[in-house]
């Protein structure tokens, strides 16, 4: 109970700190909207009957948003907190590490939801984005967000042990995310990518998240254009859960509270 209460408190504090860092707000919240604006304005063609590139792109951007606000944000900010001595100080208080992680998960969930709402609102207003067409799709959308957030939060915390310093964290983490975005069918239509790129992307969660989001935002007929001729929903859930477990195991075993 105490763990949860302090976790909620940490979550509030994390959000407060996040909102006061203008760069992070712009980067994680508005950057995807800017990308949508740019790509949506450049690529006006339809990629299949009734499917505009913007429609395809929004699905990918929402999936990317989960990775940005979970994995990327945490894998960069936690090493900085380690450098600053924040983590070491917390380690000396009666607050449990679980509360700290709950706080991070709250931050990720809230910033993801805001980002998704902005993308959908902006997409609908500027590019005539179609909303999910059935209750089943809305439900799938919801669990993809929840499981996806957990997954990228866990992986972000686990990966935060990799960068040697807060200063270098961004240089280590950002390229991984950008490469996965190209390989996973965010910026390009996935089926147009070389086979080896598709296979490589299929190891990581982002490909499955984008595919899942396409199943929510694109018409059912589009499934014929997918590599597997199926949305592979069950497989997506399993792969996301496996990565979540890997992330949690690494976080528990390897998490470092200070550099020395």
């Amino acid at each position: 109970m105490r763990v949860l209460r302090l976790g909620l408190l940490r979550g509030g504090l994390e959000i407060k700190q996040f909102l006061r860092q203008r760069e992070s707000v712009v980067f994680t919240i508005f950057f995807p909207v800017m990308l949508l604006f740019i790509f949506g304005s450049v690529f006006k063609d339809s990629i299949a009957p009734g499917v505009t590139f913007s429609q395809y792109f929004v699905a990918g951007m929402i999936a990317t948003g989960l990775v940005n606000s979970g994995f990327q944000q945490l894998a960069i900010t936690i090493p900085m907190e380690r450098d600053f001595g924040t983590l070491k100080r917390l380690r000396g208080t009666p607050m449990s590490p679980a509360s700290y992680f709950i706080g991070k998960a709250i931050l990720v969930t809230v910033s993801t939801l805001v980002q998704i709402a902005l993308l959908m609102g902006f997409g609908a207003a500027m590019f005539g984005l179609d909303m999910p067409t059935s209750t089943a799709k809305w439900f799938r959308f919801a669990w993809l967000i929840v499981v996806g957030s957990f997954c990228t939060t866990a992986l972000g915390i686990a990966f935060s042990t990799v960068p040697k310093s807060g200063r270098g964290a961004s240089a280590v983490v950002s390229p991984i995310v950008i490469i996965l975005q190209f390989f996973s069918g965010v910026f390009f239509v996935f089926t147009q990518l070389p086979k080896w790129m598709q296979d490589f992307a299929a190891i990581f969660p982002l490909k499955w998240l984008t595919q899942g989001m396409r199943s929510v935002f694109l018409p059912d007929s589009f499934v014929q254009q997918e590599v597997a001729k199926s949305w592979e929903i069950g497989r997506t859930a399993i792969i996301l859960i496996i990565w979540t477990v890997i992330g949690i195991v690494f976080s528990v075993k390897k998490f470092k509270w200070s550099n020395s």
């Binding site: 408190l9 504090l13 407060k16 006061r20 001595g85 100080r89 208080t93 009666p94």
Partner: peptide, 26 residues
């Protein structure tokens, strides 16, 4: 514990930080 050096929580005010840490303790 007062550690040797720290540079954390720069975006919070003194009051917010002290009030927050107070909640960690019985």
């Amino acid at each position: 514990i007062v550690l040797q050096s720290s540079a954390d929580a720069g975006d919070l005010s003194v009051r917010e930080t002290v009030h927050h840490f107070a909640k960690y303790y019985e």
